[in-house]
């Protein structure tokens, strides 16, 4: 259906030749934008219904029952399903710490939450298939568990702004939702997320399309292919300051991989753009001191690099 539409626009409407670079790029662009925006709307709706069962208040309650490694695993898993936007990270952080959840467990949650963005996950499954989608899911959860464990072990409690410990918030009740509330919530999410990310999708696919038609495959394969050991580190360093939505990054990653960029390198790049972004760090600075920010960036950065190498290694075996 989407391929037909793209055929129609690129070859019939614009009269481009299928075998030319321009024709190929334009076709890729229309094929991807229509497919992704369509799937995105449907998927956000269903995922939001699931998410409506896990408000942050409930997550907080669940997490205060666990300690040590189980706590980190639970926090990381709940990070996947709890609805969360970066502008809520401070109230969530304060809420967790204030209710007695250990700092490391709080970080396990905060690290995984943006990396394993369900929307991005669905796109990974549809574009790359379930193997890569699952690998991404598992490694995102692992990065959260490891990052939280390291922060816990380093005893960073004194690097949280003092006022956080002085807050005692009101116990908020968890509202019981009716089915109609969940559907309203899901509809609102579709509208809100699609209206926010469509620009990123189009820009991402635009760049992806240009790479698809024009980027020199030999060059990319040489510098970012499996044989360059430094490529993963470079991908993470380039990825951190880029504030890209995972949704917009995926089409670029797809096109890059088509040109021979190694899987681990591509996934590390994606994780770095979503997990460590400048705006998110500026928001976090309100509750944690520079030293803990540095530790956070270092720990997460190294874990992501580790994941990249692991993937590249696994791919070299198959």
């Amino acid at each position: 259906m989407f391929a037909k539409f793209a055929d129609l626009v690129a070859y019939n409407l614009f009269g481009l030749e299928a075998e030319t670079r321009l024709g190929e790029s334009v076709h890729f662009f229309f094929y991807d934008t229509t497919k992704i925006i369509f799937l995105l709307s449907i998927m956000i709706f269903f995922i939001s219904i699931i998410r409506s069962y896990f408000p942050p208040e409930k997550t907080k309650k669940l997490l205060s029952n666990y300690r040590k490694i189980t706590g980190h695993i639970m926090a990381s898993l709940l990070g996947v399903v709890t609805p969360f936007c970066s502008c809520s990270s401070v109230p969530i952080f304060i809420g967790f710490v204030e209710s007695g959840i250990p700092l490391g467990i709080t970080f396990s949650f905060l690290i995984t939450s943006p990396i394993v963005n369900e929307v991005a996950l669905v796109m990974l499954y549809t574009i790359f298939g379930w193997q890569i989608g699952t690998l991404y899911l598992v490694s995102g959860i692992l990065v959260g568990i490891i990052g939280g464990l390291v922060i816990e072990a380093l005893g960073m409690e004194k690097h949280v702004e003092e006022y956080v410990y002085q807050i005692s918030s009101e116990e908020s009740e968890i509202e019981e939702l009716e089915w109609s509330d969940r559907i309203n919530f899901a509809k609102g999410e579709v509208k809100e997320i699609v209206s926010r990310v469509w620009k990123y999708v189009i820009i991402g696919i635009g760049i992806g399309a240009a790479i698809h038609g024009y980027a020199p495959a030999e060059l990319l394969a040489e510098y970012a292919g499996p044989n360059n050991p430094l490529s993963v580190i470079a991908a993470v360093i380039v990825g951190i300051p880029l504030y890209a939505n995972a949704v917009g990054t995926i089409p670029i990653v797809e096109a890059l991989m088509g040109k021979g960029v190694a899987l681990g390198t591509a996934l590390s790049f994606m994780m770095a753009t979503t997990a460590l972004s400048l705006p998110a760090l500026i928001i976090l600075r309100k509750v944690i001191k520079p030293k803990l920010i540095t530790v956070f960036v270092t720990v997460v950065g190294i874990s992501i690099i580790g994941v990249g190498y692991m993937f590249n290694f696994i791919m070299s075996l198959v």
């Binding site: 408000p55 807050i167 009101e170 908020s172």
Partner: peptide, 29 residues
Amino acid sequence: MKEIAIAGIMSTPAIAIDGEIKIKGRVAT
């Protein structure tokens, strides 16, 4: 953010009527 956290809100935006939080975590219509 501090005030928001003190009010016990963990997902924004939220709306309260006369101090009682009614809807949170989404844009009320």
